[in-house]
Simulated assay, not measured.
Amino acid sequence: MGDGLSSFWGPVTSTDWCEKNYVHSSYIAEFYNTISNIPGILLALIGLINALRQRFEKRFSILHISNMILAIGSIIYHATLQRMQQQGDETPMVWEMLLYIYILYSPDWHYRSTMPTFLFFYGAGFAILHALFRFGIVFKIHYIILSLLCIPRMYKYYIHTTDVSAKWLAKLYLVTILLASICWLFDRLLCKEISFWYFNPQGHAFWHVLMGFNSYFANTFLMFCRAQQRGWDPKVVHFLVIFPYVKIQKPKSQ
């Protein structure tokens, strides 16, 4: 729904979404698509504090930080609707999926240095190419493929987990990603119809909120599974009754 409006940031040069631009502020192109990333930042902060407080492996702290960086990048992109900022949003999306692949597959990888080395150069190569070329559908297909690579491993962890609360985390992960995908498709495919409605349901904004929760549930589930692998006696408890997190009890030798 690009309308070519000039603003503080200039004409739209990135992909435009189904929200009218500069309705609430001349500094924020898509208001709801911008502020809807805030829950993801707060949830990632909760996860990061828990990971640091209980001294989980650094990979989980980096994962939570990457969630925050991704949400901040999305804020900048939707606030400006500029091509460079869109690429600054999309590149961390790929980096984050590579990090998930590492966390999911590295425990059974016998050659410890090869996987992180390969993923690092893959991520760096993608960043360079994405800076030089404007990927459209190619980026989406690439991102979907990376996401699908995670599913078999997530399912393996799910079937090998007997803890009911941990299984619920996996189920919440699945429900939120399905609902988020529906919101994304609804906003993208039915935009012309929505433009004639009395109000905009803000499907892309709901995508942001749901994916913030999705990442939080995924991270918490992976932390539980990793704690099980390390023999840390993990339990799923709740912060403020609503937010689940993993509480561990490390052996004294660790």
Score class of each variant (00 low, 15 high):
L129Q: 05
P92L: 03
L48D: 08
R226G: 13
E57L: 11
S25P: 01
Y155N: 01
G10Q: 11
W232T: 03
L149H: 02
L81E: 07
I144N: 11
L48Y: 15
R230V: 02
R134V: 10
K235N: 14
L210A: 04
F121E: 02
W9A: 06
Q229S: 10
N214G: 12
I151V: 13
G40M: 13
N214R: 05
L210M: 13
E193Q: 15
I137N: 04
D163Y: 07
M154H: 11
W207S: 13
L119A: 13
V164A: 13
K156T: 08
L190I: 06
F224M: 08
D89I: 06
Y157K: 11
Y77M: 08
A29K: 10
I182R: 01
P152Y: 04
I101N: 07
I242F: 14
S61C: 09
Y22H: 08
K156H: 06
I28K: 03
T80D: 04
P251F: 05
K247Q: 07
G136D: 10
W109L: 09
M93E: 03
S25N: 06
Q54W: 12
N21S: 06
I103K: 13
T91N: 05
L45K: 09
M93A: 11
L45A: 15
L104E: 05
M93G: 05
V94S: 00
F31T: 10
G88S: 08
K252G: 00
D108E: 02
A227N: 01
Y100C: 14
K58H: 04
R230N: 14
L210S: 07
N219D: 15
F118I: 10
T117Y: 07
I151F: 08
L43W: 12
